[in-house]
């Protein structure tokens, strides 16, 4: 793909937190990927693997420990606070806990207008009109909801508000951190459909974080699988689901419960050994303690992402 088609280029991104006496948590340990304009990329992996840290590092909330985040050609990590602020309207984030990410004292309407108010865009009447229009676009009747407060809304409705607010500044990139994980299946489907609709209508780039591979398959063009701070496989959705190469991706796929009594997920073939923690300094492959295919080589040599098919990257010495 042409360089200029890329909206986001992440290179060698690392996020570390201090921990205990001189220890550190390597939440993100060298991650690189691109995101094209209008593309939806899913990021999956178990809890604690660094998905949220990666998302926040892209948003520069807080800034990453090292690495670059090029947004539309501009390295965000090198920008000063003021320049960063002026770019912010173009990349927005939606969080997992919809109620906690809204100001409980503000009406829904004011919450949705707020980004425009902060930017000093338009006059009050126009802001209200735009907010009402956006509410309708995300399926919230403005007559019913404009004056309500978050406590008077369900989880799904709060998530619609978050989406509306994020879209007000006409961003090019939407980073969604488990936006449906706390919602019921029936409501989850509404929000996934809404995200797809706005993504396609507006040509948005989407980084969609989830621990549920089945959802990612519905929404995304490509998937990145993360394990302990690193990407272990990146592939187009079709390829990942039909021919996963990394043993961890395979385990994730095999474990998805299906609403079909004839298909019962097998107990995973992962080893019961004590997995590494992000505080360990790890030699070799970070997955090897749980990997059914691990060999000597895996203990000494860290596998790098390499291409195994069109756009299909795998970091494993013994891919299947």
């Amino acid at each position: 793909m042409n360089r200029s088609d890329m909206l986001l280029r992440i290179e060698n991104l690392a996020v570390e937190f201090p921990a205990g006496n001189r220890g550190r948590v390597r939440a993100v340990a060298g991650v690189s990927f691109d995101l094209a304009r209008g593309e939806a990329l899913g990021l999956v992996g178990e809890s604690g693997c660094g998905k949220s840290s990666l998302a926040r590092a892209i948003m520069q909330l807080p800034r990453p420990t090292s690495g670059t985040v090029a947004f539309d050609g501009e390295d965000l990590t090198a920008l000063d606070a003021e320049n960063l602020r002026s770019l912010r309207p173009r990349f927005q984030m939606i969080f997992q806990n919809p109620a906690a990410s809204l100001n409980p004292l503000r009406t829904i309407g004011r919450t949705i207008e707020a980004p425009l108010r902060t930017l000093g865009r338009h006059d009050a009447a126009e802001r209200t009109r735009l907010a009402r229009e956006m509410m309708a676009a995300v399926g919230l009747d403005p007559l019913q909801f404009y004056e309500r407060r978050p406590s008077q809304l369900s989880g799904g409705q709060c998530q619609r508000v978050s989406i509306a607010r994020a879209l007000m500044t006409e961003p090019r990139l939407l980073v969604c951190d488990e936006p449906v994980s706390s919602l019921d299946v029936s409501i989850q489907a509404q929000i996934i459909n809404l995200l797809r609709e706005v993504q396609q209508a507006r040509g948005l780039s989407l980084l969609f974080i989830s621990h549920d591979l089945a959802i990612v398959r519905h929404l995304c063009d490509r998937v990145a699988v993360m394990y302990l701070g690193k990407l272990c496989e990146v592939a187009p959705v079709g390829a990942l689901f039909s021919a996963p190469h990394h043993p961890y991706s395979r385990a994730l796929l095999a474990a998805i419960p299906r609403p079909d009594p004839k298909h019962r997920p097998a107990a995973s073939d992962l080893l019961p050994g004590e997995p590494f923690s992000p505080m360990d300094s790890i030699e070799g492959c970070s997955f090897r303690a749980r990997c059914p295919r691990a060999t000597e080589e895996c203990a000494v040599q860290q596998p790098e992402l390499r291409e195994m098919g069109a756009g299909h990257l795998v970091a494993c010495h013994h891919p299947s």
Binding site: V185, S186, I187, Q188, A189, Q190, I192, N193, R196, D212, L213, A214, I215, R217, H218, L219, C220, D221, V237, G238, F241, I256, R258, P259
Partner: peptide, 17 residues
């Protein structure tokens, strides 16, 4: 409403309103 692995990829989900 459950996203399923045997649906076509990127199909719309059947939400409950």
């Amino acid at each position: 409403a459950i996203p399923r692995l045997d649906d076509p990829a990127q199909a719309m989900l059947t939400a409950i309103g």
